[in-house]
């Protein structure tokens, strides 16, 4: 059974078709990256999966439950961590989690041990009695992740889990995500605008103009947009060029476009017959993938801090 199953999903807002028929599956235990420029239909799709919006057509199920007809079952099996904080700043960390446990109807005897487990996982156990308002941005995000995990969801939705955080905090959040994957039998569905984060996903889907334009592992996606680029410097470039008819001489050296750079280089050393003094392999990045599928770089499509976000930032 798939953790998430989407079939012919459509959503229109009046005249505007935000999602125009999308199909995909997410396997249990997978970390699934969901990418796309703003307005691509990404958020709408997630809203439907989280039962926060109704689909206009098609179907979707999460953790085996239909998002339309089994709304509460879906909600009980998913954890949600939104981009904007949804914590009560004036309650303590522990009370925020307890509130969540009550709303999700957790068995009473499991609340205390689970609370300790998730707070320790995100390193906030010693701050459980502090009010959330005293927390830094990174701590709040960690607490939100802990809360999202509180009721042991099967699928955890992370919407831009690290946006607006400094690199160190981002790294630590990812550390928690990795630990989580080892500790719990959980599927992670996340959106991100950071390429290095997308890289850590098992598979990536890219949406654009309401359609799914790509879906595969990061490696396969990169392979699909181009070949590895091997650049060498030799003691005799002219001779090397003669022996490598496909190579191009550039200012950086001799450039070869090959399928499998790592496999090609040892052969090159063995067979070229001209001493090689320097070698580098560069692979197509996910940014190249994103660019080739959407016509924009992932950076360009990053959340444009519009007025609401601006005011939200001012308020902090």
């Amino acid at each position: 059974m798939s953790a998430v199953e989407v079939r012919g999903l459509k959503k229109s807002y009046g005249e505007i078709e935000a999602v125009k028929g999308v199909d995909f599956d997410v396997q249990p235990g997978e970390t699934f990256g969901f990418l796309g420029p703003n307005g691509a239909g990404k958020s709408t799709t997630i809203k439907i999966l989280c039962t926060l919006a109704k689909a206009s057509g098609g179907s979707a199920s999460v953790a085996g439950f239909d998002v339309t007809s089994q709304r509460d079952q879906v909600r009980r099996h998913i954890g949600l961590v939104f981009q904007d904080t949804t914590l009560d700043n004036y309650l303590t960390a522990e009370l925020n989690l307890r509130f969540h446990a009550e709303l999700y109807g957790m068995p009473r005897e499991s609340v205390a041990p689970r609370l300790e487990q998730v707070l320790k996982m995100v390193g906030l156990w010693d701050r459980k009695d502090s009010k959330v308002i005293t927390f830094s941005g990174g701590m709040k995000r960690r607490l939100e992740i802990a809360r999202g995990l509180m009721h042991s969801p099967r699928v955890l939705f992370l919407d831009e889990p690290t946006v607006g955080l400094d690199p160190q905090t981002r790294a630590s959040i990812w550390q928690y995500i990795h630990e989580l994957r080892q500790q719990e039998e959980i599927t992670i569905f996340l959106t991100t605008h950071y390429m290095d984060e997308a890289e850590q996903c098992d598979r990536i889907a890219i949406m654009d103009h309401g359609l799914l334009v790509a879906l595969d592992t990061p490696a396969a996606l990169k392979a699909s947009v181009g070949t590895d680029r091997v650049t060498i410097r030799t003691s005799d470039d002219e001779e090397a060029l003669k022996r490598l008819p496909d190579a191009i001489q550039t200012g950086d050296g001799i450039v070869l476009n090959v399928e499998d750079g790592e496999g090609y280089v040892p052969k090159l050393f063995a067979e070229l017959g001209v001493p090689i003094t320097n070698v580098s392999i560069s692979k197509p990045s996910l940014d190249d993938v994103f660019l080739s599928y959407t016509g924009r770089t992932i950076r360009d499509s990053e959340v444009n801090p519009g007025m609401p976000a601006f005011f939200a930032a001012m308020r902090r």
């Binding site: 509460d72 079952q73 009980r76 099996h77 307890r98 509130f99 009550e102 709303l103 109807g105 957790m106 068995p107 499991s110 689970r114 487990q117 009721h151 042991s152 969801p153 099967r154 080892q182 500790q183 719990e184 039998e185």
Partner: peptide, 23 residues
């Protein structure tokens, strides 16, 4: 490795809604 937390899905009952109201 911690034991995988089992999901206990309570039935939707009046008691469950009462808990939500109370909190």
């Amino acid at each position: 490795t911690l034991p995988v937390a089992s999901v206990v899905v309570p039935k939707r009952t009046f008691a469950l809604d009462a808990r939500a109201i109370k909190i």
